[in-house]
Amino acid sequence: MSFHSRGTEPPEDRELMDVRLGAEIFQTNCRFCHGLPGKEQPPVAKGMTPTPPRLDRSLLEKEPRELHYIIQHGIKFAGMPAWPVPTRGDEIWPVVAYLRQALKEDRDSFHAERSESDLSALAKLPLLQACVDCHGVDGGSRAGKQVPHLTGQGEAYLRQSLIAFRSSERTSGVMMPVCHDLTDQEIEALSKHYHEMNSADVRSRVDEAIPDQAAIDRGRELAMRGDRGRKIPSCQKCHGPDLENRRDDYPSLSGQSKWYLQRQLELFEKRARGGTQTARLMHPIADELSERDRSDLAAFYASLPTSDKRSEK
């Protein structure tokens, strides 16, 4: 394993190894066979041949890159599947961080306590159970900058995105398992809920270094005017920040984390993101964007307040 994982190193940005996000991903993808770290497997998993190994402290002897390799590629003839989306290795690092910290501290879980407002919302819409620990009841990211906020997004965009995750047309080893069993009616209910949420101070929950003003200014120029010579259209006509004429099935970008926005543009350029029916419109645009363009655009939109569609009405 040490040989095969050579060249795979944890991200320099340690915020991309968010333990809380890793705990939520583990609950969705891994606990059915392995149980919680340091605990016995679920009874049914014990009957598997071969039996999934216990996740005990012996795993701490493996390097983070080795754990990443195992999760990404699986283990042949052992029942250990590969990560659902081979191109999304970035989604695995939070799981690695969670495993290592849970084993070191012998903790069952890293779930934050639910507030009274959380419990009240869950009582009204139990479906939120699958969403609240990462996206919050109000759509604000609770699990780091890798998780987008949903507040201010159009109901049509949210609905189409959940359908795309369910069908694997949009690639994510995190969201696909969550959406796999959602019915159309459940998707409608979740989309309506997050669309109607207030955007109060969502941006403040994403702890990122503020980009330099020059980058924001370059991003603003490109977003508002485009670049006719490179056939790059204006971003604001589809994505805001002016939402007056924006279609409901296009995402608002204002206030998302810089890392998240830049990553989406990279995935579009690599044809590795997928998405709704309109996602393919981004491919020729992403092809023309340089690395600095992507960074500047992300810096500009991350600097803006979160859009509240209700205030635009």
Score class of each variant (00 low, 15 high):
Arg247His: 15
Gln256Trp: 09
Met224Arg: 06
Ile210Met: 08
Trp259Lys: 00
Lys231Arg: 12
Pro211Tyr: 00
Arg247Thr: 14
Glu244Leu: 15
Phe268Gln: 01
Gln262Gly: 10
Ile216Arg: 08
Pro251Arg: 09
Pro233His: 02
Pro211Met: 03
Arg218Gly: 02
Trp259Thr: 03
Phe268Lys: 01
Lys258Tyr: 06
Arg247Cys: 14
Ile210Val: 09
Ala215Arg: 08
Pro211Leu: 01
Pro233Trp: 02
Gly229Met: 09
Ser234Gly: 13
Gly226Asn: 04
Glu221Arg: 14
Leu243Ser: 12
Ser257His: 11
Glu244His: 15
Gly219Arg: 01
Tyr250Glu: 11
Ile216Tyr: 04
Asp242Gln: 13
Glu244Phe: 15
Asp217Asn: 09
Leu222Lys: 03
Arg220Phe: 01
Leu222Arg: 02
Ser257Ile: 14
Gly255Ile: 06
Asp249Trp: 12
Ser254Val: 01
Asn245Glu: 11
Lys258Trp: 05
Leu261Arg: 05
Glu221Asp: 15
Gln256Leu: 12
Ala215Ile: 02
Tyr250Met: 15
Arg247Glu: 14
Gln264His: 11
Arg230Pro: 04
Gly226Pro: 01
Asp217Ser: 09
Gly255Ala: 11
Glu221Ala: 15
Gln264Trp: 05
Pro251His: 12
Pro233Arg: 03
Ala223Pro: 01
Ala215Gly: 07
Glu269Met: 09
Glu244Val: 15
Tyr250Ile: 13
Gly240Gln: 08
Ile210Trp: 06
Gln213Asp: 14
Ile232Gln: 00
Gly219Phe: 03
Lys258His: 12
Arg263Val: 07
Gln236Arg: 15
Gln213Thr: 13
Leu253Phe: 10
Lys258Thr: 11
His239Tyr: 04
Gly255Asn: 08
Leu253Glu: 01
Phe268Pro: 00
Pro251Gly: 10
Gln213Leu: 14
Ile216Cys: 05
Phe268Glu: 01
Lys258Ser: 12
Leu261Gly: 06
